[in-house]
């Protein structure tokens, strides 16, 4: 065999392997989505949205869990995203390349990848232990801490994308940075920041570990913020590991709902970003 044939063979093998790897990756995604759809759709019914989590063997739905997840995600975003947006603004507008900013960016990226169970432990120590009981507000706080790094990163990136000319014109008119930011930058970076919010929502709505020892769970309908509140991920955790068929069906249905929601949010974020980039590209 000539050296050339050997090289070509090697090339062919590795390229084929890369194709196999991609096929495997896609196959896994397909397998998971397929399982979710087949098991989840079986458990779907209008009851899901109208009834509370049932006792084992009984009829029921996921209303309290859906509500709880919605409330805590909303609160988490309401608390976390202003902090993330403001901090991102600081890094983009005031700090820029200062030492402090470099450190903050670094720490933020670390927080972005940190295990969420650690955040749960942190909130447990400072909130749950002091309050004496689990609560929805503790859960929301844990989620807000998870939302901050995502919104910070996106906000900073988006603000940096705004053409320098716009900032300079505003400053030339005599505006202070706060005025420039509020009247010029935020509106210009609006879709990017919204994308960051969508990504943050996608991130925190699927989190289970931080809610395990902050919001715990609740079988019944509860709207009290300082009491344990039902939420979808913990309910799925509990129901999936149980031997009761009705609970397992609900767990799959809940899993399908979460996954679809998150996928829709992620895809929307992507679409908005793509549109944004196209706009920028053509605008320049």
């Amino acid at each position: 065999m000539t050296r050339r044939t050997l090289r070509k063979a090697k090339n062919g093998i590795f390229l084929a392997l890369s194709l196999v790897a991609t096929a495997l990756g896609l196959a896994c995604l397909a397998a998971i989505l397929w399982t979710l759809l087949s098991h989840g759709l079986a458990g779907m019914s209008w009851n899901l949205f109208t009834q509370m989590t049932p006792p084992p063997g009984g009829q029921g739905g996921l209303l309290n869990a859906l509500y709880g997840s919605a409330v805590m995600t909303l609160l988490g975003i309401l608390i976390g995203s202003p902090i993330g947006v403001l901090a991102g603004t600081y890094l983009a507008e005031y700090g820029r390349d200062s030492r402090l900013s470099t450190v903050i960016r670094f720490i933020n990226d670390v927080l972005l990848s940190a295990p969420s169970i650690i955040i749960g432990l942190f909130v447990y120590e400072i909130v749950v232990v002091h309050m004496g009981h689990f609560s929805a507000i503790a859960g929301a706080l844990a989620l807000s801490i998870l939302a901050i790094p995502v919104t910070l990163r996106t906000t900073e990136d988006m603000l940096n994308l705004v053409p320098i000319g716009m900032k300079d014109s505003s400053a030339a008119l005599g505006a202070y940075p706060w005025r420039t930011t509020l009247s010029v930058l935020y509106p210009a970076a609006r879709s990017g920041i919204v994308t960051g919010l969508l990504l943050a929502v996608a991130r925190i709505s699927g989190e289970t570990a931080p809610l395990l020892f902050t919001a715990l769970n609740n079988q019944f309908w509860s709207t009290q913020l300082n009491a344990p509140m039902a939420n979808l991920p913990v309910v799925i955790f509990q129901f999936a590991l149980s031997p009761y068929k009705n609970w397992q069906d609900l767990a799959w249905a809940g899993a399908l709902i979460i996954t679809v929601t998150i996928l829709v949010l992620s895809i929307s974020a992507r679409v908005i970003l793509a549109l944004l980039q196209a706009e920028r590209g053509s605008g320049r």
Binding site: V71, L74, L75, L78, T223, Q224, L225, N226, A227
Partner: peptide, 10 residues
């Protein structure tokens, strides 16, 4: 709205 919901009687 959130505040109102949280004070709802249980």
């Amino acid at each position: 709205a959130a505040a109102a919901l949280s004070f709802a009687a249980v």
